[in-house]
């Protein structure tokens, strides 16, 4: 009986924590290190986002990128969750256009776009310094800051 009560109370306590954490991630990209100034004339792109993430979660953002623009994509998370694995995928063909695991897991990417197109960005955290137990246990914030200028 005691055990059941403990389990149920844990669920009660855990649910609000998740909700609070979700809310605290809302503007993570605006305050975390991914909000660096990439240079003059860059503007904020409203497709920038922050989400809650855990190991094993794959966030697949579907975005529109416009022609004749240079985009600066910057991703950030807690250092315990690094490295961040990022793939840029052609939304029409599902071809992987770029994979940062072949580029030293860079978290800042410059993208020059010739034609307006839809691109999927797949993001997952590797959390290489965490133990398997910790990976199961922790959730954190992931920020994606997008800035652009005319090229």
């Amino acid at each position: 009986m005691k055990r059941i009560i403990i389990i149920i109370l844990s669920i009660i306590l855990f649910t609000p924590v998740l909700e609070a954490q979700r809310k605290s991630c809302r503007k993570f990209h605006l305050y975390a290190e991914c909000n660096a100034n990439p240079g003059p004339r860059f503007k904020y792109d409203g497709q920038s986002r922050s989400n809650i993430i855990g190991v094993g979660d794959q966030l697949i953002y579907n975005l529109v990128f416009y022609s004749s623009r240079e985009y600066n994509l910057s991703f950030c998370t807690s250092e315990y969750f690094e490295p961040i694995h990022i793939q840029l995928i052609d939304a029409e063909t599902e071809d992987v256009l770029y994979d940062n695991s072949e580029d030293e897991f860079r978290q800042v990417i410059t993208m020059n776009v010739d034609f307006t197109q839809r691109i999927k960005i797949l993001v997952e955290i590797k959390a290489e310094s965490m133990t398997e137990e910790e990976k199961m246990e922790f959730l954190g914030c992931l920020g994606m800051m997008i800035q652009y200028k005319k090229s």
Binding site: D45, G46, Q47, R49, N51, V55, G56, D57, Q58, L59, I60, Y61, N62, L63, V64, Y66, K135, M136
Partner: peptide
Amino acid sequence: IEVTKSFIYLFP
């Protein structure tokens, strides 16, 4: 570890 894919649709 359960792999969960989340699709997020954004637009300008």
